[in-house]
Design a protein around this nucleic acid. Structure first.
Lengths: 241, 241
DNA sequence: CGCCCCGTTGACTCTCGTCAACAGACGTGG
DNA sequence: CCACGTCTGTTGACGAGAGTCAACGGGGCG
C-alpha cells in the first residue's frame, strides 16, 4: 500500500465488501446524530455513501474538476471557496457535521472544497443520484429543497457582504456559528482568522481588531483565540435585524 | 370597476374564460421568443400562467408575505431585494424577460420584488406546482436545476461583493447585463444608478464616478445616462478572471 | 530547541461613503 | 407655452472605515 486512497478506490473497495466499513477503521456506521445513517436522505436508504476521511487542509475537490461525487460531513468541517487569479479568495460556505455539499450546476465543480480539520465524510456518486432524481419525484424534491436552502444562505451572505460593517459581519457570523453548534453560546471556532476573513470579505487584521472591539464592548469573551463565549443579547443587538 | 386588479382576481377571471386572455388585452399569447408560451416549462403545458401587469416601481410581493404565486417575466424587468431596519438595501437579483422568480424556501417570501419598469408577467400558483413536483420527477428536476442556477448566480455575486473593487464590480455587472441582452455591446440599462448601487454594494456616487472613470479609460461610452456602448475587450480586462 | 504559523496590535494609506451643490430631463399645472 | 418642482445623474470636498505593511508574542510540531 502506501499510496494515498482516493474516493474512487474507496468506493471500489466498499463495493467488493459487505457490510460497508470505513477505510480508516472507525466504522461506527451511523453518523453523529444526523439521523441519516449512511443513506443520502433519511428516508432514502437505497443511496448509500462510502465513508472516507480527509486530513486538515486537504483538498477534497478543486474548481473545474469533474463533479463525480457529492459529500456529507460526518465529523469535522469543510470550506467551499472560489479564488481570483490574483489570489483573492471568497469562502462561500462552511459545512459542518450533517451538511451535504458538492452539488453544482453542470458537470464540473465551480468551487474548491477543503477540510478545515480532520474530517470524515460519506461519499456518494453523483450519477446514480441524478438518475434516481429523474425517476423519483421524492428524491428530486429533496434535492430541490436542499438547493433552495443553500440559495437562501447565499443570499443572506450577499446582504452581509454588500451592506454590513465589519462589526456587524463578525457578530452575525458568530451568532450563526453558535446556532449551528447548538446555541449554547460557548464553542471553539473550527476555522482560522483567515478563513473567517475570507468568508466575511475582510482581512485577518480587521477580523482580529473587531474581535478585540467586541470583547471590549462585552459582547464576547475569548479564551485562547479559538475558544469563544458569546454574550448573545449584546451580539444580537449589534446585528439588529 | 376602478379597483386595482390583484393576481388573485386575475386568476379567477382567467379561469372563468376560455381561451386565456391578458387582462390588458395584449394577449399575443406566446411570450417574447422565450419558447415557453404560457406554460411554466417548455415541455410542461399543463401548468399555465395567467398574464398580469405591473407598473414601474410597483411592488409585486413583499418580504414576509405569503408566497402564493411565482412569476415569469414576459416583458420588462423586476428586482428582488432585502432591506435592513435602517433602510440599507441589497438587491439580490434582476429578473429580465424569460426569467422565473418568486420561489422561496418555506411558505413566505424572504425578499421583496418590485417592477423596475412597466412589466408583464405570467403568474402561476405555487401550490399546484409543488403538487406537480411531488408527482412528476421531471417537474421536480426542472425546479431543482433552476434553484441550482440561481444558487450559482448568488455565489458569483458573493465573490463580487466580498472581494472585488468598485471598478471590477461595475465592469462585471455591465458585461453580465450585456450578455443577458444578447451580447451586442450596446444597450439601455433598465435600472437606475440606485438599483445598480444596491446590487453592487456601493453608493450611487461611487457608481457614477466609476462610470466616468471607465469612460475615461475607454472601456465604455455613455449616451444619456442609461444608454451604454461597451468596449468589451477592455471591460473584460478589468474583470480579468 | 528552533522554526513556523497563528493571532494581535500599531502606524499609515487609500478606497469608498457622506454631504453638498448643480445640471438636465420630465411632468404638471397655471 | 412656460414656470416650477421633482427626480436622476454627475462632480467636488472631506472624512471614516477598512486595507496594507510591519513588528511581535505564543503555541505547536518537527
Amino acid at each position: 500500500m502506501g499510496t494515498k486512497p482516493t474516493p474512487r478506490s474507496a468506493l471500489a473497495a466498499a463495493r467488493s465488501r459487505t457490510p460497508l466499513r470505513s477505510i480508516h477503521g472507525n466504522g461506527h456506521g451511523s453518523g453523529h446524530g444526523t439521523g441519516y445513517g449512511t443513506g443520502l436522505f433519511a428516508d432514502c436508504p437505497d443511496l448509500l455513501g462510502t465513508p472516507f476521511s480527509y486530513a486538515r487542509e486537504e483538498e477534497i475537490y478543486g474548481e473545474g474538476e469533474d463533479a463525480e461525487f457529492v459529500y456529507r460531513v460526518v465529523e469535522g468541517a469543510v470550506r467551499s471557496h472560489k479564488v481570483l487569479s490574483d489570489g483573492r479568495r471568497q469562502i462561500t460556505g462552511f459545512h459542518l457535521a450533517g451538511s451535504l455539499f458538492g452539488f453544482e450546476q453542470g458537470d464540473v465543480h465551480w468551487h474548491t472544497a477543503e477540510a478545515l480539520a480532520d474530517t470524515r465524510v460519506l461519499i456518494f456518486q453523483r450519477r446514480p443520484i441524478e438518475r434516481a432524481a429523474t425517476h423519483s419525484a421524492e428524491v428530486a424534491c429533496q434535492l430541490w429543497s436542499m438547493a433552495t436552502a443553500n440559495l437562501r444562505d447565499a443570499q443572506d451572505l450577499t446582504l452581509l457582504l454588500g451592506r454590513r460593517s465589519a462589526q456587524e459581519r463578525l457578530a452575525a457570523f458568530l451568532v450563526e456559528v453558535d446556532g449551528r453548534f447548538g446555541g449554547t453560546g460557548t464553542f471553539a471556532l473550527p476555522m482560522t482568522r483567515r478563513d473567517i476573513a475570507d468568508y466575511l470579505g475582510l482581512t485577518i487584521e480587521t477580523v482580529s481588531r473587531t474581535f478585540s472591539q467586541l470583547e471590549e464592548d462585552g459582547a464576547l469573551r475569548r479564551s485562547g483565540g479559538r475558544q469563544i463565549t458569546l454574550h448573545r443579547a449584546r451580539l444580537r443587538h449589534v446585528v439588529e435585524n
